Structure formats: structure tokens, C-alpha cells
Amino acid sequence: MVHEERSMTLARTPLFEEIQAQNARFTDFAGWEMPVQFTGLKQEHEAVRTQVGLFDISHMGKFTFKGKQVLEYLQTLVPSNLKRLQPGQAQYTVLLNAQGGIIDDLIIYYQGEEKTGEQHGVIIVNAATRSRDKAWFLANLEDAPVDLRDVSRDRVLLALQGPQAAVTLQPYLEADLSGLLAFEHITTPLMGEPAFISRTGYTGEDGFEIMVSPEVGKQLWRSFLESGVTPCGLGARNTLRLEAALALYGQDLDNTTSPIEAGLSWLVHLDEKGTFMGREVIETQKSKGISRKLVGITMEGRHIARHGYPVLYEGEKVGEITSGTKSPTLGTAIALAYVSKPLAKVGQTLEVEIRGKAHPATVVKKPFYRSPQGAPKS
């Protein structure tokens, strides 16, 4: 009874009943009732690393945009140069506030320009920040001729991830996926309807994200599972992304962290852009340096560093764990943490306080794991 009452307050994706039929364990994630695991975290994690796994990520925020010179207006809200984008290309970037803090991390997909001169594309944002992001876009683009539409509830979004993702998806499409590079996307028929397909993911492996209507999404989910694809939950999604040192908004990133502190300097194109939100703060951090930095650390022994645990040096707190787990692939405990800049060098020895006791840790190079197959070229 308690479960039923809780479920009534949570949003469900169009695939909820399909997933429920697989006896998945559910959890509350950003107000959505989402599968945390199906057969088990380790099995699902291993399937993505070695074969192919399927995630329902329909809870993610999905916007379409259209308008004349729309990329120029979006330029003012992110530190990346969107003018680099050619039709069919995408940019991972961050929305910044005036203090240079990260409002959200997102991907902007540019689909091209119509004969009318209107540019159009897709923006995918985090589920927990969808409403805030939408309000931010509308407030800061209110004087711009931009038509921004929230299609989050109208579309299913699937992530097909792993070294066998391309050969698994190819039979459903007329388009040749071998020519689709990382962070490129196409719109192509799939099961009789147009499908938006991008070579992107959140696992450190090759893979695709597929946006379709709910009906096609259900058919595709069933078909993939019938062909032997492993359904995966948020548990495996988290361990996979952490091994690849991919940040999670709300833990590793928030509106008090800048892209420079978060190790995302490669998203900041100061020499290619004019004014954008938070530029002065970012320029100062670039020229004068930062006081803290997001680093990767490994733990000795069996101790696992978790979100919020203090990081110590010579008995003094010098930082805090943002994400941590035991890596299924590596068999060791890994974590991300913000630490004082002088202590952020690879090889630096630190300690993490766990239940009142200090345990040895070492700063290591990110990512913790890199796919032996390699990602598709971009």
C-alpha cells in the first residue's frame, strides 16, 4: 500500500509498464519512478562494457528550438562556441549563471537551417533541472525570436550502449551508422516514423541515444529485449558513468561550481566568443587560478568513499567527496572529489574520513576506465 501511494506522486515514463513486466526494482529519481536494476547491477554493468545494454532515459528533459540566428542567442548562455556546429553536429556544454556557476550540463544538437532562415535543433537536459532550465532559457531569451518547446512528456528517449550497439541498431535503419561520428546525429525512419538518433551516451562506451514517439519506443524496447539486449537500470548507469569520470549534476556539478573547477575547461572557448553569462568570473579564474579542483581518487583496501565524505590532508579537511563507488570493472573503490588546488596533482596522497576514521586515498588521472574498443571518432 505504501508503494502504491508513493508511486502516485511520481512521474512515470511511457515505458513504465514494459519495465515493470521485467520485475525491475524501482527508485525515486528526480521525481520519477525509475528502474534502479533488473537482473543485478554487476551483470548490467558488464553487459554494457562487453556487449550491449539498454536504458530508458525518457525522464530526461527534451526541448526543441527554432528561430532565426537562434545559435547566436544561445551563445550568450553557454561558454562554448556554438558557431562551430555544422548541421548534424552536437556540443556538450553548460548553462552558466552570472557567478560562473553551472546551472546544468546539457547537449545542444544543431539540425540545420531551413529555407526561411530559421535554425532548429534539440536540447537534452537533466531531469531534475528541466523546469528550472526552461525558465532560465525563456527569461534570458524573451527578447529573442526563439521558439523553445518542451517535448519531454511527448517523446521516449532510449540509450543503447556498448561495443555491440551499432550492430544491434543498424538492422532497424536504412541509414548507415558507420558514417555517424561521436556527437553527430541524424533523423531517419525507424518502424515507420521519423527517429532522432545521436551517437552519444553516458557510459564511456560507444552507443546511441534514440528519441521516438511513445508507441515506437515501446515496440523498440520489446524488440531489443527479444533480440537479447540487456535492460539496465540507474544503478549501472551510475557506476558506468563514474568509471568514465563523467559528472553527475547535483553532485559533481552545481550552481556554485565553475567549469574551470570541474575540469571542463575544454568547454570554454574564450578566444572564439564575445559576451556570455559568467564570462568575467571565468576569465578571472583562467588568469588567476582556482582554489579547488575536481579530481579522481582511488581508495586503498575495501573502503568506499561516498558522496559528502570529508577529504583530509594531515588531519585537516581539504575537500569533499562528490561521487563514489566500488568499480565493477576495476574491482577497486573510486571517487570524484573537490580538493584544494595545491593537493590536486596526480599521485598526491590524501585520506577520506569514513565513519570517524581516516582511510588512505590517492589522486589519480581521469578517467578511471577507458574503453579498449575506443570511442567513435569525432
Rank of each mutant, 00 (worst) to 15 (best):
Q119L: 06
V122Y: 11
I123Q: 01
N126I: 09
A127P: 15
T129F: 05
T129G: 03
R130S: 13
R130A: 14
R132Y: 09
W136N: 09
W136M: 06
F137A: 09
F137E: 08
F137V: 11
F137H: 07
L138T: 08
L138S: 11
L141F: 03
D143I: 05
D143T: 12
D143Y: 12
V146C: 15
D147K: 11
D147I: 08
D147G: 05
D150R: 04
V151S: 14
S152Q: 13
R153I: 00
V156M: 03
L157D: 06
L160W: 11
Q161P: 06
G162C: 13
P163S: 13
Q164A: 02
A166R: 14
L169F: 03
L169Q: 02
L169Y: 01
Y172P: 04
L173V: 00
S178H: 10
L181V: 02
L181H: 06
A182E: 04
F183Y: 15
H185E: 12
H185N: 12
T188V: 06
T188C: 00
P189L: 04
P189S: 07
M191P: 08
E193A: 11
P194Q: 10
P194E: 10
I197W: 07
I197Q: 11
S198L: 10
S198H: 08
R199Y: 01
R199I: 00
Y202Q: 09
T203R: 02
G204L: 02
E205G: 07
D206N: 15
D206Q: 15
G207A: 09
G217V: 03
K218F: 00
Q219H: 08
Q219Y: 04
W221Y: 07
W221G: 11
R222T: 14
S223W: 03
F224G: 07
S227I: 08
G228S: 09
V229Y: 10
